[in-house]
Amino acid sequence: MDARSLEIRWIRHQFSETVHLYRNGEGQYGEQMKEYAGRTELARDGLPGGSLDLQISGLRPSDDGQYVCTVLDAATYGEATVDLEVPHSPLGPL
């Protein structure tokens, strides 16, 4: 299913706050958690085939955890949960 016309929202499960919102064919950043500002993007090349992959740059230990992707259009709603495990360096930050 082509996902370009859908509303796609990625949220942090424990906070129920928006990590990334895609609506009307583009990213919407007004509701985004400040911790993710400038670090998220929906992989747009996968949207025509229904791929809803979220890319987070500059991963931090605080990004570790559960994310929920919700999809909404005029007639349907769906959601999926993803666990992100951020590898922790034994040496700490470099």
Rank of each mutant, 00 (worst) to 15 (best):
M1G: 13
D2A: 06
D2N: 15
A3I: 12
R4T: 15
R4M: 13
R4L: 05
S5L: 11
S5H: 10
S5R: 11
L6W: 08
E7R: 15
I8C: 07
R9S: 13
W10C: 10
W10F: 13
W10L: 10
R12A: 09
H13I: 09
Q14Y: 11
F15L: 15
F15E: 15
S16T: 11
S16Q: 15
E17V: 00
E17Q: 14
E17K: 15
E17P: 03
T18V: 15
T18F: 02
V19S: 02
V19C: 07
V19M: 01
H20S: 08
L21C: 04
L21N: 05
L21D: 10
L21R: 12
L21F: 01
Y22R: 11
Y22P: 01
G25E: 01
G25R: 08
E26R: 13
G27R: 12
G27P: 02
G27W: 03
E31T: 08
Q32G: 00
Q32K: 08
K34H: 07
K34L: 09
K34V: 07
Y36T: 03
Y36H: 00
A37V: 12
G38T: 03
R39S: 04
T40C: 07
T40W: 04
E41R: 11
L42K: 00
A43W: 12
R44I: 09
R44F: 03
R44V: 12
D45S: 11
G46W: 06
G46A: 05
G46H: 09
P48V: 00
P48S: 02
G49T: 10
G50H: 07
S51M: 11
D53Y: 08
L54W: 02
L54A: 00
Q55K: 11
S57L: 13
L59R: 03
R60W: 04
P61G: 03
S62H: 05
D63T: 01
D63E: 03
D64A: 03
D64C: 01
G65P: 08
Q66G: 05
Q66C: 10
Y67V: 09
Y67G: 02
V68H: 00
V68I: 15
V68F: 04
C69K: 04
C69M: 11
T70E: 15
T70A: 05
V71M: 04
V71L: 06
L72Q: 15
D73S: 06
A74K: 07
A75E: 13
A75R: 09
A75N: 10
T76N: 14
T76I: 09
Y77E: 13
G78C: 08
E79P: 09
E79K: 14
E79I: 05
A80S: 15
T81R: 14
T81P: 05
T81K: 12
V82R: 13
D83M: 13
D83G: 06
D83L: 12
E85S: 13
P87N: 04
P87W: 01
P87E: 05
P87K: 01
S89R: 14
S89W: 09
P90K: 00
P90S: 00
L91C: 09
